[in-house]
């Protein structure tokens, strides 16, 4: 099964030399009797922008949740910078440098904008924490004036920014994003995608972007994986996937 759906995965055409910063090896996960992930393998190079695409129920969200320990893997491994993090509890995974912005952002609407951001950096408990706060504020000017307001007053786009900002407060190496474009206007979506690219260029962040908006995600990333019914149905350079009519029609629906 794995061998058929993952041609060339063992050699990993994307970055033949560099060891991937995030490696997923034959990862499987289930909800009761339903297998949500079936032998999924990915290799994300450091400072790469990687898209994970697929229809509803293809396993994209489960993949991210399993990576950060919110869902338990039934088999397989997750390696972050060569270290096995598969069985670590979520709060430990985060401190290893893997941040996860869940679907909808997971902003805590009862807390203020500033409290949400500070929360993301609390575990660091080092002096740099306040510089990070200023840096994050600089990235998102709309949040500055809302600083003392509760997050419930923010628009969808602002919430997504806050969620990303909170994740950045922990100075992660790898950022996992679950459908940041969900419910956002196309222009705002574009801003967020552009921001991801900026972050990679400026602070060397590695990004794994889960999206249903396949065209948008492929245009901003370098490499893409297409999930179908819990396994990798296709993978390759983003422009290649974008140009490949068969993959597009079969899995991406455009």
């Amino acid at each position: 099964m794995n061998a058929q759906t993952l041609p060339g995965a063992a050699g990993n055409g994307a970055s033949p030399d560099a060891e991937p910063i995030l490696a997923v090896e034959n990862l499987s996960a289930s909800y009761g009797a339903v297998r949500a992930l079936d032998n999924v393998s990915l290799a994300v190079p450091a400072q790469g922008l990687c898209a994970v695409l697929g229809a509803n129920g293809a396993g994209k969200t489960t993949l991210l949740r399993t990576l950060t320990g919110l869902h338990r893997a039934s088999s397989g491994r997750v390696l972050l910078e060569g270290e096995d993090i598969t069985r670590l509890p979520t709060e430990k995974v985060i401190t290893r440098g893997l941040a996860h912005v869940p679907e909808g952002g997971g902003v805590i609407v009862e807390l203020t904008v500033e409290e949400n951001l500070r929360l993301g950096g609390l575990w660091r408990s080092d002096r740099r924490s306040s510089t990070t706060f200023d840096e994050v504020m600089d990235l998102f000017p709309p949040l500055v004036e809302r600083r003392t307001k509760t997050a419930s007053t923010l628009s969808g786009g602002e919430r997504q920014m806050l969620a990303i900002g909170r994740a950045l407060m922990g100075r992660p190496r790898v950022l996992l994003l679950d459908e940041p474009s969900l419910g956002l206007a196309p222009l705002v979506t574009k801003q967020i995608f552009t921001l991801l690219r900026d972050l990679r260029d400026r602070i060397g962040l590695t990004v794994v972007l889960v999206e249903q908006n396949a065209a948008g995600a492929l245009s901003v990333t370098e490499h893409g994986y297409v999930l179908n019914q819990g396994s990798v149905a296709a993978e390759g350079p983003s422009d290649g996937l974008l140009a490949d009519d068969r993959t597009r029609h079969a899995y991406l629906g455009f």
Binding site: L70, P89, I108, G120, L122
Partner: peptide, 20 residues
């Protein structure tokens, strides 16, 4: 702040490194 985060939104708290 950790306690409030854990009470309001346990999953978001865990994703922020809070031991809920």
């Amino acid at each position: 702040l950790r306690m409030r985060a854990a009470a309001f939104h346990p999953e978001a708290a865990r994703l922020s490194g809070v031991k809920v």
